[in-house]
């Protein structure tokens, strides 16, 4: 099976799901509880532009090669499958790029005074001098170099099975991978990538991810409803779809 064949069902799914998800802006702020609890709005109510697809988003931090990697990697970490859309469809790549321009990505939320002891035991917590922006830059370069050393292709050009295998090796951080990762530990890179991918799948869409509320819908999280007085004691499935801070509705 070629990677083309493998990827086709996902792209197909993406195309269909993006056109099927109704996104209705109820109001920008000050949503009343009664409005949120109302029955799903009919399709003709408050038509808004369809969600912007990942292809339209221009990354502001990542280079073209890095952007290709991020898109390919998030699509494997949380793939589109029978369970529904994945991280790519949710906009996790856009989310990660947008995060690169926040204080978080430059380590401004962390205590970054030296001296550093990057080899400290894991139970001492984060002890690296590296910050997310730099970890991505170094980690993507190392992964692509490793990938090219294998068969001349960058990570994004590998078939899905090879990508999964590479991600598993990054996750394990074994010595055969470490040899290609002088500047950043593979596990550190993988953990950051996975953490940010999950954030992009599950965050409020205000941050650029979880487009169409697909992450929340998959697990049954109602988002910004945040009012469950009548549901506390009930052993029943919660029936209302998710809403976002901006009033988008799943």
């Amino acid at each position: 099976m070629s990677d083309q064949d493998q990827d086709n069902p996902r792209r197909d799914f993406l195309r269909k799901s993006l056109t099927l998800i109704p996104v209705v802006t109820v109001a920008s702020t000050g949503l009343g509880g009664s409005m949120l609890m109302a029955a799903p709005a009919p399709a003709q109510a408050s038509p808004v532009p369809p969600p912007v697809s990942d292809k339209a988003y221009e990354p502001s931090y990542f280079s073209a090669e890095e952007w290709a990697f991020i898109n390919a990697a998030v699509a494997r970490l949380i793939p589109a499958d029978a369970q529904g859309p994945g991280a790519l469809e949710a906009g996790a790549a856009e989310y990660i790029d947008r995060q690169m321009n926040t204080p978080y990505a430059s380590g401004a939320l962390w205590f970054m005074q030296g001296p550093f002891n990057a080899d400290a035991a894991p139970e001492m917590g984060w002890q690296s001098k590296l910050v997310p922006k730099v970890i991505y830059r170094l980690g993507i370069a190392a992964t692509d170099a490793w990938s090219k050393a294998f068969n001349g292709k960058a990570f994004a050009a590998q078939d899905s099975a090879t990508q999964d295998d590479m991600l598993r090796r990054l996750e394990a951080g074994g010595s055969e991978v470490s040899a290609h990762f002088d500047a950043v530990p593979p596990k550190m890179f993988f953990n950051l990538l996975l953490q940010n991918t999950k954030e992009g799948f599950f965050c409020d869409p205000i941050h650029g991810g979880n487009k169409g509320l697909v992450g929340w819908t998959m697990i049954g999280f109602p988002g910004a409803r945040a009012d469950f007085m009548d549901w506390v004691e009930r052993n029943e499935q919660y029936p209302f779809p998710a809403v976002s801070i901006r009033g988008e509705r799943a």
């Binding site: 970490l77 949380i78 369970q83 999950k198 599950f202 998959m218 697990i219 049954g220 999280f221």
Partner: peptide, 27 residues
């Protein structure tokens, strides 16, 4: 969902198996 999902021991941390378990167990 970001910090508050957990799955039974042995569940992978990513991929379709993680997705399925997270959908199955979150609530």
């Amino acid at each position: 969902p970001i910090a508050g999902t957990s799955n039974p021991p042995g569940t992978p941390a990513w991929g379709s198996a993680w997705k399925r378990a997270t959908a199955d167990y979150y609530t």
